[in-house]
Simulated scan of single mutants.
Amino acid sequence: MLDYGLDTSGLDRDLALPDLVAEGDELDALVSAHTDWSLPTPAEGWTIAHQIAHLASADANVLIAIRTPDAFEAVLKQAEAAGSKYADLDAAEGAAKPRSALLEEWRAGRAEVAAALCDIALDHGFPWYGSQLTASLMVPLRLMETWAHGQDVYDTLGVPHRATGRLRHVASLGVIGRELSFYAAQLPLPTEPFRVELTGPDGRTWAWGPEDAAQRVRGSGLDFCLRVTHRRSLAETDLTAVGEDAQKWLDIARVFL
């Protein structure tokens, strides 16, 4: 996950929340139309059912963290005990449920999460894995996960994943997660500022950082999101970098540990 100590002032819960709902609804329409959830996805060992189960489980944990934060300690202990196998085991448990039950669980959970994140005060912190979060960060995080795991499903079914303006929230997470990328790769943090210029699906430019920064990244917003969520290799994107640190960042970019 992201280093939650980073500057997240550019994130807007009220703008991202309807996009989170729309992203979930769009993926719902896709998986509801396909009856075979046993198809393997690009994630090793994960079927479509595993992808949906993972999203449903994460939503359930968000509700625990917000409603009963003391009880979230049990979730953390379970994750610690399972180690690197935690996500796989959790997804497998959910994937074993009947398709109709899993679908209804995911639908109900994401609706409850949207309502809870809408009602909570913006400055109210709640526990998450390794840190405290606020709704301003959790909303785009849930959107990012929904979109990224949805991409796996779209790839599995061979259906084009329509790029929308919702990707700007994912791209913002990728930009503020730059330090995380270097930290996770055990590399020194860059000291120079970065300029990121991405082209959104509507042709408009999304930009972060000072215009005169020597370290620069350019490309499509879609490709940037695919890269930072590890859905595509750098070679499969149109992203370009100027500056040694910028190039290194694209090589190691991520929005999660």
Rank of each mutant, 00 (worst) to 15 (best):
L250K: 04
F194W: 09
I64G: 04
A53N: 01
S136Q: 15
T191P: 10
D28H: 09
K77D: 15
M138P: 04
H230F: 12
F126L: 11
L250A: 07
H161A: 15
L141K: 02
H50L: 00
I66M: 04
R227E: 03
L250V: 03
L198D: 05
A253V: 05
D155P: 05
P42W: 00
T146Q: 08
P98V: 01
L137F: 12
G94R: 02
R216G: 05
L117H: 04
D202Y: 09
Q132T: 14
P127Q: 08
E44K: 08
T134G: 14
H34K: 07
V217C: 06
Y154F: 14
G209A: 09
T191V: 15
C225T: 10
L157V: 07
L30T: 07
G130D: 13
T156V: 09
V113L: 05
T199P: 03
V113W: 03
A213I: 10
D123V: 08
A74T: 15
A235D: 13
D88M: 07
P160G: 13
H124G: 00
W206T: 06
Y86D: 08
Y154E: 09
L122P: 14
E112Q: 13
F194G: 03
A53F: 02
P69L: 14
S9P: 09
D123W: 13
T41H: 03
Q151C: 08
A79W: 07
L173E: 06
V31E: 01
W46G: 02
A241P: 01
R162G: 13
K248C: 11
P18G: 09
Q78G: 14
V62L: 11
P201D: 06
E80T: 15
A214R: 09
K248S: 10
L27G: 01
R107G: 01
C118H: 12
W128A: 02
V62D: 05
A79C: 11
D7W: 05
A82K: 13
A53H: 02
H124W: 11
E80C: 12
Q78V: 14
S100I: 06
S57L: 00
S181A: 15
H54C: 06
L143C: 05
W128T: 08
Y4K: 05
H169P: 03
L39I: 07
I120W: 04
D19C: 11
I66H: 04
A58W: 00
E145Y: 04
L2P: 02
L187N: 07
G5T: 14
L30D: 07
A49I: 02
A101H: 01
A33W: 13
A43L: 08
G219L: 04
D19V: 13
L137T: 09
A115T: 11
A214Q: 12
L122Q: 15
S233W: 06
I176L: 14
P210V: 11
P140W: 06
L222E: 10
D19P: 03
